[in-house]
């Protein structure tokens, strides 16, 4: 882990029930920047401080949920190597040509055991964060809405999180940072994985149905901004699921809420940094409440039951 392979989450592609309602929400309420629309009817967004062209793509469909989640890798050579490694591991991969997504290079797509489509890519147009690379200012004025700095991670629900974890660890170089155990004291109920020094880049919860989305998460820079995000959500009548509060797992401060199609999103801040010489943290089943919502010390019923 000197961040030479898989670098970070790159884009999440999600389905919304009404495109313009979705665009209005992601642009004016969450405060992402619209960066393009393609001939498939997809709309592209990025958070203001991201430099690459897009990190969230939405399309209209008759059911919400996630189409795919992608990671950026360091180079085209790494992309080739990881594709070969995946094949050698027994994973079927598919190449999606450069340009199929706006400003995005060739993608390697594969299905993981929890039923989700994951993509790797090496190239995406650097459109900048609105400030020059020489003598920049420190932030961009006149941002709208909550205005997170980046799309940070996602939490996905599916059946075989054990095989998914193995694939992420053994082929993609991820590490286990935290886990919550089930009642038997052995089986993982939930796992948090990192490919960087973040406390998580992707997480999974065991769930009877494959391919489900729990949330896509966006990073804020302070706890005060998390509180302000809650104010903006209430002003805009956004459906809040939980928070502002703190997770025991990763220690991030957080709000869970829903977009106008029922896809959960998170706006969060903080969490500790992780290095590969650290051992994972384990939460036992009787402490799952505190692990997920540290102050309430209990799960809300929606945490395990409400997904898209």
């Amino acid at each position: 882990m000197s961040m030479t392979g898989v670098l970070r989450p790159g884009h999440a592609a999600i389905r919304v029930l009404d495109l313009e309602q979705g665009v209005n929400f992601y642009k004016n309420v969450l405060g992402l920047l619209e960066t393009g629309r393609d001939n498939q009817g997809r709309v592209y967004f990025k958070a203001w401080d991201e430099r690459d062209h897009n990190s969230l793509v939405i399309r209209q469909a008759d059911r919400p949920g996630i189409d795919f989640f992608a990671f950026k890798v360091q180079s085209k050579a790494v992309l080739e190597k990881l594709d070969a490694d995946l094949k050698a591991y027994g994973v079927t991969t598919e190449r999606i040509p450069a340009g199929e997504m706006l400003h995005t290079g060739e993608r390697v797509r594969f299905k993981i055991p929890t039923g989700h489509l994951i993509e790797l890519y090496a190239e995406k147009t650097d459109v900048g964060n609105g400030m020059p690379y020489v003598n920049p200012e420190t932030w961009v004025p006149d941002l709208k809405g909550i205005a997170p700095v980046r799309m940070d991670h996602c939490l996905l629900y599916g059946g075989d999180i054990d095989a998914t974890r193995k694939l992420f660890e053994e082929v993609l170089g991820f590490s286990l940072v935290e886990r919550i155990l089930m009642e038997d004291g052995k089986t993982d109920l939930a796992i948090w994985l990192t490919c960087s020094i973040k406390a998580h880049d992707i997480a999974f919860v065991r769930h009877p149905e494959d391919g489900k989305l729990h949330h896509v998460s966006f990073l804020l820079e302070s706890w005060e901004q998390v509180l302000k995000a809650a104010d903006l959500m209430s002003m805009n009548r956004v459906s809040i699921d939980m928070g502002p509060t703190r997770h025991g797992v990763t220690r991030g401060t957080t709000i869970y809420a829903f977009d106008p199609s029922g896809n959960r999103f998170e706006t969060f801040c903080g969490g500790y940094q992780w290095y590969p010489d650290m051992q994972p943290i384990t939460w036992t089943f009787d402490n799952v409440g505190a692990g997920v919502f540290y102050h309430d010390r209990k799960l809300n019923p929606a945490f395990l039951a409400v997904v898209t």
């Binding site: 059911r63 919400p64 459906s239 829903f258 977009d259 199609s261 029922g262 896809n263 929606a302």
Partner: peptide, 26 residues
């Protein structure tokens, strides 16, 4: 649940009366 027509936990059968509706997950 989500209060936005996505998760389905709030499904009801309207036995009597009229209502306006919006798009819901198929």
């Amino acid at each position: 649940g989500c209060r936005q027509g996505g998760c389905g936990v709030c499904k009801v059968e309207v036995l009597e009366g009229t209502y306006r509706k919006r798009v819901m997950s198929r």
